[in-house]
Design a protein around this nucleic acid. Structure first.
Lengths: 337, 337
DNA sequence: TGGGGGGAATGAATCGTTTCAAAGTTTGTG
DNA sequence: CACAAACTTTGAAACGATTCATTCCCCCCA
């Protein structure tokens, strides 16, 4: 690559580098004649701005980092899309990082984003809010938690009330007459999981005679769900739950696959099943899946918006916790028998 | 953000900036004692490398751009995952761009990636290989086409034989006795769509008495599929196809939803249905979906690998076209009646 | 004709990291 | 004890875009 810089463009157009820069950034300040000459030179030489140099001077990049738990989960790609929409309005790009529910990868992305001097970071964090995040913020990178409430007010966040969602799901199962509920989800380190479980516990407590057991999984994927389903199938019939609440739709679909394909268990006849997130595929499942809907794209959109406000306000920003309410969507998988 | 640079670190540790840089990049060349002192200073001051400055000096960034047609399509997130795996082995990051089947967005990402001086670009391009891509390459950014064969040998590519895949699908439908096939897909500008259709045409030509019509869609999404399904339902029963080959699984699931939810058409009884890509959700659909499997993660992995080889070889690289073979996966949606 | 005003263009300084030739220090050997 | 070889460390010079204080022009008016 023959490196073409503003210097070469300036020479070709017979102007100074300062003028080239002005044409690029404030064409109004340059005479139309010169603008034309410089643009011709740019086109002729095939000049492409070097973003690294630009950022170095500017001090900040024009992108926002987004770390999600799993890019293969449609819920998070929807969040990303919403974030991208809002970011695009400001001419910012979204850098998408995939922590794969792993602390090491999460940290690796945070390091990367910090080195890139991103405008800010949106993250659906694992486990406790480690000091990695606190340090990040203290060093000047605005941070907004996504799909997770900030318990301690030290962070801004955009989330959905997961306790309420868990309550909705379990209450619904109980209300269609199920009594042996199982919560499928994990690992316990993920806040969304524990919150949804907490909500479910609350609902169960209000329904005398209804029990809730926990079947822990290693991740929130279809595969993990299938394994959980197999564990259920391995039990004698009398010890199986009569309803399953899965911590997300991927798990639920995995459970459904296991019950349907390897077992003779009927959904919802023998076991009712409800998931969480209401991804597009839930409605199209073997047995259309009941779920708890979250406004995914709106979460992303709002999170970027909040991030921009926080960045603009600087230091003394009053952190804001935005909480959306989840919504129960009933489909065949929890129809009364 | 109090800007901490190598200069401050050097001062704190009582060494020169050159030494700090050496600690960062070649710790072996620095005495253990000094390394320790510098690292202590780094930790104490909370120094974070400025990647922009680094890139500026290096001339190239440590990332690879990937432009896909649709991030919400699990096929592409699988490709991205494969690409990420190979890139990570070299300490490179993947920047994921979503063209949403739009030329403007595709170009915007290419511009962005070029300004970032990415190591190279992987792209599943729309329409013809415009000169945007040619110029990109001429200016020194290695480019590899993904999920699309390079017809003219001017580009390297990693793809699956879409004509063969289309043939497999249509041949399968004909072989289970269907005679009025419909191809659902579009827009015609997308190469994958036209290739798959071409393969289907070839198969149909070999089966006397079997016809093939084309039902064009505006995009390759579940929604577009649902619309196509509704168009089929709107016809009198006698004019409906008895088999549908959808250009990808998202479309197929949309068609399935329309037929199942709004109509009284049975799949596969009245209409057999086959998709393309074999995404994880295909197996879990209302009616488990037959599909044409592509080795998605492997495509991404191989594409990065090829890109790296091309980048290493420099100018005179012999472009390589890698073609994988697709595979027919038969499930309930095309079981003989 | 002299001077003032305003629009346009200039170019040196800056951002922070890496590189590399050169200088400095230690170790080992005859 | 002198000297070479092997390590360490140094610091100034890039990389390329942007910023402003400054200079340059041109035009108008007194």
């Amino acid at each position: 690559m023959s490196s073409i810089s503003v210097r070469e463009v300036a020479a070709e157009a017979g102007v100074s580098v300062g003028t080239v820069s002005n044409v690029l950034n404030r064409p109004g300040k340059v005479s139309p004649d010169t603008v034309a000459r410089v643009q011709a030179a740019i086109a002729h030489l095939g000049f492409v701005r070097n973003d690294a140099a630009r950022q170095l001077r500017a001090g900040r990049s024009r992108s926002i980092g987004l770390v999600v738990l799993d890019v293969a989960n449609p819920f998070f790609t929807d969040v990303a899309r919403g974030a991208e929409d809002r970011a695009a309005e400001e001419g910012l790009a979204i850098l998408l990082g995939n922590s794969d529910e792993t602390i090491d990868r999460e940290n690796a992305y945070l390091d990367l984003f910090e080195e890139q001097r991103v405008h800010g970071v949106l993250i659906s964090p694992l486990g406790d809010l480690g000091d990695r995040l606190t340090r990040l913020r203290e060093r000047g990178t605005p941070t907004v938690l996504v799909d997770r409430q900030a318990e301690d007010r030290r962070f801004s966040s955009v989330a959905v009330d997961d306790v309420a969602g868990g309550y909705l799901a379990a209450d619904h199962l109980a209300s269609i007459g199920r009594v042996r509920l199982a919560f499928v989800g994990g690992p316990a380190g993920i806040r969304q999981v524990t919150d949804r479980l907490e909500g479910a516990r609350k609902a169960v407590a209000e329904h005398p005679g209804v029990s809730l057991e926990v079947i822990e999984t290693e991740s929130l994927t279809v595969l993990a769900g299938r394994e959980a389903g197999e564990r259920i199938l391995a039990r004698p019939e009398s010890e199986r739950p009569d309803a399953v609440f899965a911590a997300n739709d991927l798990l639920a679909m995995g459970v459904l696959q296991a019950l349907n394909m390897f077992g003779d268990v009927r959904v919802p006849g023998d076991i009712a099943l409800i998931g969480y997130d209401d991804i597009a595929f839930a409605a199209a499942a073997v047995v259309p899946l009941s779920s708890i809907r979250q406004p995914s794209a709106l979460i992303g959109y709002t999170a970027v918006d909040l991030l921009l406000r926080e960045a603009a306000a600087g230091e003394g920003f009053e952190h804001e916790q935005i909480v959306f309410q989840p919504e129960l969507v009933v489909r065949a998988s929890t129809m009364p028998r």
